[in-house]
Design a protein around this nucleic acid. Structure first.
Lengths: 100, 100
DNA sequence: CGTGTAAGGAATTCTGACACG
DNA sequence: CGTGTAAGGAATTCTGACACG
């Protein structure tokens, strides 16, 4: 299911250009647990297009005055809810379609 | 029609890791007109996932002993052929579907 | 022709900290 | 809390060239 969208290959400078968000902010949002870039051997951050999209949504929330803690909680709740829905669907269909 | 696949956002080091092709070779294939990365303001090369795929195909050809000039000609011919086919289709359907 | 490598410089990224508020 | 910035160092990339074949 993973595609180009999820490959972590973009450096922070490009992400900053793509989103218009400063590198300082991008690193800070990571520190607050909103995004999770990978790292190269030497510690260079690598982001996916999915991360870029997430950052755009985060930026919107921030402009609305939402705090990082709240954004994180919202994302976490949404994630759990989606996982439960997927679980229900899988139970219903008895894994007719592969889950992997 | 452009998507993540065509966005030029990957630096040469990552492309090298993704493809297993040395940076020297990647730059050389550009010099020979096989790939066309974009450049940042300061001259840093940026590649797309499409470029990565193209490079994998180039690597196969090279292993078969095909020369860069021949690979370039093949790609050029294929491109022209595809453009002609698209032209015919567009004429036939009278641009029923938008061309943009 | 295709590719490795050393060379020197420029551009990028990283972290921890101080500042402001 | 969220973000800018200067600081020093490490990692990345660039070009032109020499080498081999």
């Amino acid at each position: 299911m993973s595609s180009y969208k999820d490959k972590k290959v973009i450096s922070i400078g490009i992400v900053s250009e793509l989103t218009g968000i400063s590198q300082r902010k991008i690193r800070y949002y990571e520190e607050r647990g909103l995004i999770f870039p990978e790292r190269s051997n030497k510690g260079i951050r690598k982001y996916s297009f999915q991360d870029v999209e997430t950052l755009m949504k985060i930026a919107e929330k921030m402009e609305e005055g939402v705090q990082t803690a709240e954004i994180r909680n919202d994302m976490q709740r949404r994630k759990i809810r989606d996982e439960m829905i997927r679980g229900q669907l899988n139970a219903h269909f008895r894994f007719r379609n592969s889950d992997k």
